[in-house]
Design a protein around this nucleic acid. Structure first.
Length: 275
DNA sequence: AGGCAGGCTTTTA
DNA sequence: TAAAAGCCTGCC
């Protein structure tokens, strides 16, 4: 593998922390770095220090695709600096420890399906299902390494999967949820462009009207698929955080419009600390 | 109306 | 055997 493009960025990033943060399920370890499928392109990336990214793509592709994928135009330092150590020592510590996390700009469709799949499952199991779906229904694409990889299936590809193939993706009772969402997206009944135009609350409600999507999954889709940084998913880990660290209430209003971003630091910190 | 219990596929620890 | 980035249905 050749890493032809080297970029210096202005604030620290940690690929490892992003990989562990539970927002991407197709990253795999490769060559002291990671392999990342994204649409019909893929990337091999590694870092020699917190400010240097080495990538397999051309500079042009970095500028047009990957710079945005890693959300490098958002000033995380500024957003984190709003949190006061005196007022909120727990969040402050979480941010210090998890510095380098970013909210990736992944495909909305892929995040919609992936988020449905996450319910009641652990991360290795989620990764396996997403990979199986891609292998069985996704387009085979040419990889930057010379081999090939499978893109995440489009709505039509997913909707057209033979029953047998879909069953083999180990989705359990979520199989029906995935199929229904794919059929609606393929038919146009669910229009992702229209969804994107809705304000947070309406957007979440539209998603919740789909079978298999509740409040938590809808929040994940907003945060990870639409980059709505205020969306605040409360899963079992965040429930523990809120109960144990904020017995007198969490100052959600004060942290708008970045609740989702702060949540990501707390989620990662608490999970790491307790496991 | 809104809250709660029980069930759900499969994998992992 | 229980828990896992939860949601749905039925019941009260």
């Amino acid at each position: 593998m050749t890493y032809g493009t080297k970029v210096r960025i202005h604030e620290p990033i940690s690929l490892q922390k992003i990989a562990d943060s539970g927002q991407c399920f197709r990253w795999t370890k490769a060559d002291r770095g990671f392999h990342i499928p994204h649409g019909e392109k893929d990337l091999f990336i590694r870092q020699s220090d917190p400010f240097t990214l080495e990538m397999s793509c051309t500079e042009e592709e970095y500028e047009s695709v990957w710079h945005d994928y890693f959300d490098l135009d958002t000033d995380y330092g500024e957003i984190c600096a709003r949190v006061s150590e005196e007022a909120d020592p727990f969040l402050y510590e979480a941010i210090c420890r998890q510095r380098g996390i970013r909210i990736l700009k992944q495909s909305l469709w892929e995040m919609l399906i992936t988020s449905i799949i996450t319910q009641n499952r652990n991360i290795p199991a989620i990764q396996k299902s997403v990979e199986l779906l891609s292998e069985k229904a996704g387009t085979q694409c040419e990889s930057a390494c010379g081999g090939s990889f499978f893109a995440f299936p489009t709505p039509a590809q997913l909707a057209d999967m033979p029953e047998q193939d879909l069953q083999e993706c180990r989705l359990g009772y979520r199989t029906e949820y995935v199929r229904l969402a794919a059929q609606k997206a393929a038919s146009g009944e669910l229009n992702l462009a229209e969804l994107t135009a809705l304000p947070d609350k309406e957007c979440a409600n539209r998603l919740i009207s789909l079978k298999g999507i509740g409040e938590k999954v809808a929040a994940c889709i907003l945060l990870f698929g639409m980059h709505r940084l205020d969306a605040f998913p409360i899963d079992v880990w965040m429930k523990r955080v809120l109960e144990n660290e904020y017995p007198n209430g969490y100052p959600k209003a004060a942290y708008s419009p970045y609740n989702g971003l702060y949540q990501q630091y707390m989620f990662a910190y608490y999970r790491e600390r307790k496991s």
